[in-house]
């Protein structure tokens, strides 16, 4: 390693430390050995300017993407969460857009968080919005295409789900709570209720939306999103019970029509 690379790796380590440079005598000495400072700003304070900015910038980026989570767990827990998260997952992408990619998983494992289950739902929801926001564009499926699929091809055909669709199985109405918080409200925290099955998607106007689905619709769309052929995805719905089976008989066409109208489907692959 060159002297330059060695210096930079030392600096990278120094900048990502949580403790202020001035409070660590070893870092102060190291900074004085490497930087000149001037009559107004000591060498350690020069380094501290950058260290402080590292934390401000990354905390700020996470706060932009997880505003509702930060609101619910409040400042102290939020700061601890960010600190532990960045220590476990230092930024590794050129874009801050990716910074929170592993935060939902991290929140799930952080059982010390206040309102832990709700926090996990919020983190998953907020990250889904980030992913949907700039997912690959895709033309919506023309609903008339469905009518043109030959009967014999239905079993093995695959309906392609748009990249800008995310499906969430939640214990709390997190998308609605997220929206209230982002609009500046301070809502009561919801109680755990029945499962909230939600699709987060980007509409044809490129605005982000969410919609609640019932279990049968959710299972069907989830199967399609996983790449299952129509027959297999439909069988998973039927496996929910006799009521679902009856609905498949009577409502399958309207479900697909609804999915297509919302832009959740983007194509058909015939095997």
């Amino acid at each position: 390693m060159t002297d330059l690379s060695e210096l930079q790796r030392w600096m990278s380590d120094a900048l990502t430390r949580r403790r202020a440079v001035e409070r660590d005598p070893a870092q102060v000495a190291a900074a004085r050995a490497r930087f000149t400072g001037n009559e107004r700003v000591a060498p350690e304070a020069q380094l501290e300017t950058y260290r402080e900015q590292f934390w401000l910038r990354h905390t700020g980026a996470l706060l932009e993407d997880f505003e509702a989570l930060a609101h619910v767990i409040e400042q102290q827990a939020w700061e601890r969460l960010v600190e532990e998260y960045l220590a476990a997952h230092p930024p590794s992408s050129f874009t801050l857009r990716d910074l929170g990619a592993r935060l939902p998983e991290f929140v799930r494992s952080a059982s010390w968080l206040p309102h832990h289950s709700l926090s996990a739902d919020l983190a998953a929801t907020e990250w889904a919005y980030v992913e949907v926001f700039d997912a690959v564009d895709s033309a919506p499926l023309d609903p008339s295409t469905l009518a043109q699929i030959p009967e014999h091809a239905w079993e093995r055909a695959r309906l392609l789900v748009a990249p800008s669709v995310r499906l969430l199985e939640l214990d709390f109405p997190a998308p609605a709570l997220r929206r209230q918080i982002r609009l500046g409200e301070d809502p009561e925290l919801p109680a755990r209720g029945e499962a909230h099955l939600v699709v987060v998607y980007r509409g044809s106007d490129r605005n982000l939306r969410h919609e609640r689905l019932d279990r049968a619709e959710f299972v069907l769309l989830s199967g399609l999103a996983r790449g299952q052929a129509l027959l297999r995805a439909t069988e998973a719905v039927i496996a929910l019970g006799p009521e679902a089976e009856a609905r498949v008989e009577s409502e399958l066409g309207s479900w697909f029509g609804h999915f297509a109208a919302r832009g959740w489907l983007t194509g058909v692959e015939l095997a």
Binding site: L4, L7, Q8, L15, Y50, R57, A61, P91, S92, F94
Partner: peptide, 15 residues
């Protein structure tokens, strides 16, 4: 702006 796999998202001066 990066070292050891960590992206610092800053414009750090060079010596």
């Amino acid at each position: 702006c990066r070292a050891g796999g960590t992206e610092l998202h800053d414009l750090l001066p060079l010596p």
